[in-house]
């Protein structure tokens, strides 16, 4: 299931840099975790994958993840800045991304270095 519009919405689209707001009412928070809602790190990764695909105009899947560091928790209602460095070489997309607080870029949440197709 695409998470754009359900887990998050894009509130500012600057191409390689977008600002997203996480929907606090997404059903995943009923289970992750009951009474203590925390955005699953893997859904933050899915959001980055979808935004990368949106940026280059096609759906992408991860082929490999060199590293993904989840530096701090992401919580429902957070507004976050996603910066993507994307290169598309004959269908293989290399991507490095950082996810930080929208207003404070030292508030690092996630760093990702991956290859997609």
């Amino acid at each position: 299931m695409t998470q754009n519009g359900t887990l998050y919405e894009i509130v500012h689209d600057g191409g390689n840099e977008v600002v997203v707001r996480l929907n606090a009412n997404h059903p995943v928070y009923q289970g992750h975790f009951p009474g203590n809602p925390i955005t699953p790190g893997v859904l933050a990764m899915q959001m980055i994958r979808e935004c990368t695909g949106r940026n280059i105009g096609r759906n992408l899947r991860f082929r490999s993840i060199k590293s993904c560091r989840l530096a701090a928790m992401v919580r429902p209602g957070d507004t976050l800045r996603l910066k993507m460095d994307i290169s598309d070489d004959n269908g293989t997309v290399k991507m490095k991304a950082t996810l930080t607080g929208a207003e404070n870029e030292e508030d690092l949440r996630l760093q990702l270095d991956a290859e997609l197709q």
Binding site: F33, N36, G41, R61, R63, S64, I65, K66, S67, Q117
Partner: peptide, 16 residues
């Protein structure tokens, strides 16, 4: 409670 701290060297097959 537990959390993913990092993921390294993940390789996916194209048959999901």
């Amino acid at each position: 409670l537990g959390y993913i701290g990092d993921i390294k060297k993940a390789v996916f097959d194209n048959r999901m």
